[in-house]
Design a protein around this nucleic acid. Structure first.
Lengths: 203, 203
DNA sequence: TCGGAAGTGGAGATTGTCTCCACTTTCATT
DNA sequence: AATGAAAGTGGAGACAATCTCCACTTCCGA
C-alpha cells in the first residue's frame, strides 16, 4: 500500500505536500481539535497554500476521511487477526471490547467520527464500509458457528457502535459504552440456534 | 406548563414574536430542512428582525432545542402513561419500539437529534435530560421487578438510542433500528436477577 | 398622559470558506 | 543537459453566513 494505493500517478512534490497536510491533520485530529480550527489554517500549519489544501482535500470532511481511514485500517487489521486466531464468538467479543478501548484512547477519533456521521453522508462511505465489512464478517462467522442469532443483522451492531461513537462526550462514557457492548453481545447470544443446519431468516 | 415555564415575565409583544419564531421553526424542523437554511432566514420567514431572532435564540442549536423539547415532551408523556398501565418490562419494550416508530415518522427529528448530539453538547442538555429520565425510570422499574438486569445502567440504553438517531440515514434504517432494540431488550433480560428461570421475551 | 424600561430591526462589521489564475516545479523527451 | 508543456502551487480577494450594535418603537405601571 505504501503511500498511494490507487491508479493515480501523483507528482513528487504534490505527494510531499499531500503527506505534510495529512501528517498535520492527523496530529490535530488526535488532539480532538479538528473541528475547532479554521480550515485554511490546516494549510498554513502544514506550510502550504490554501489552494493546495483545497486541491488535495476539497472539503474538511474529505480531509477527515483521509485521516480516519488510516485509523480504521488499523482496527480492521486487528479484526482480521482475531478472526484467524480465535473462535468466532470470542473474536467478535474481543473486537467490540477493543473498539471501545481504542475510542477511549483516541477520543479525537470518537469526536470526529461523531461529527462525520451526521455531517458528511458521503464522507465516511469508504472508511466506514471497511469497518462495517469487518464487523459483518465477524458476525457472520459467529452465526455460522451457531453461537449467535442470525435474525438481527450486523447492521444493528454497527448502529450500536455508531451510538457509542456519537455519545462520546457523555459523562460516564466508558462504563456506558461497555454496557452497550454487553447488551449487544448478550442479546446476540440469546436466541442463537446451536447446531441447526438451517436457520431461516424469518422474522 | 403551557407556553411559559420559568420565572421570567416576558413582555406581551415579545412573547408573540417568540411564538411566531417557534412556530415557523417547528414547521421547517418537521420538513427536515432545519439545517439547510440560513439562520437569518428564520427571522425573515417569521416576520421579525434578525436582532429579535438572536435575542430569543442566541444560536441555531438553541432554537432547535426549543422545538425539540416540545417533541420530547410528547414522548415522555407516552412513557409515563405506559408506566402507569403496563408491567415494567412490557412498558419498557413498548416505549423503545414506539421510539423507533416515532423517529421513523418524524425523521426531521431524527436528523436534528443526530446533529444536536454532536454539535451542541449543551443544547440537548435540557430536553435530552427529560428523555433520559423517562428511560431511567422505565429501566429502574423493570430492574425492581426483577425482569431486567441491574448491572448495566440506563445510560447504555440511551447510548443505543443515540446510535439509532445518529444513523438515521442508513439504507435499512428501520430494520436495523428494530434489531438494535431487540438486542438491547434481550440483552437486558439476559442476566436478570430473580428466581424466574427463563421466559421467552415477547417480540 | 407620560416616562422609562423592554423590546425591535436591519445595516453593516466580522469571520470562515472557497475560487481563480499568474507563476513555479517536475519530468519525459531528445 | 536542455527544453517545453503538463502538473502543481499559493495567496489575494470574492463570496456567504453569522452576529453585533444602537437609534428607534412599543408596552405598561403610575
Amino acid at each position: 500500500m505504501s503511500t498511494r494505493g490507487s491508479a493515480k500517478p501523483l507528482r513528487a512534490d504534490a505527494q510531499r505536500n499531500r503527506q505534510a497536510l495529512l501528517a498535520k491533520a492527523r496530529e490535530i485530529f488526535d488532539a480532538g481539535e479538528f473541528f475547532d480550527l479554521r480550515f485554511d489554517d490546516f494549510a498554513r500549519l502544514a506550510g502550504v497554500g490554501t489552494g493546495t489544501l483545497y486541491r488535495h482535500f476539497p472539503t474538511r470532511e474529505a480531509l477527515a476521511e483521509a485521516v480516519y481511514r488510516e485509523e480504521v485500517v488499523a482496527l480492521c487489521d486487528r479484526a482480521r487477526r482475531l478472526q484467524a486466531t480465535s473462535p468466532p464468538l470470542e473474536a467478535l467479543a474481543t473486537f467490540l471490547r477493543d473498539f471501545v478501548d481504542y475510542l477511549h484512547e483516541h477520543h479525537g477519533l470518537a469526536r470526529t467520527l461523531a461529527t462525520l456521521m451526521t455531517t458528511g453522508s458521503e464522507a465516511l462511505a469508504d472508511g466506514s464500509r471497511a469497518l462495517e465489512e469487518a464487523v459483518t464478517d465477524l458476525v457472520a462467522a459467529a452465526v455460522e458457528e451457531g453461537t449467535v442469532r442470525g435474525d438481527v443483522g450486523a447492521g444493528a451492531v454497527m448502529m450500536a457502535l455508531h451510538g457509542i461513537g456519537a455519545a462520546h462526550d457523555r459523562p460516564g462514557w466508558r462504563a456506558e459504552a461497555d454496557g452497550v457492548i454487553t447488551l449487544v453481545l448478550d442479546g446476540l447470544v440469546q436466541g442463537a440456534q446451536p447446531s441447526s443446519p438451517n436457520d431461516s431468516p424469518a422474522r
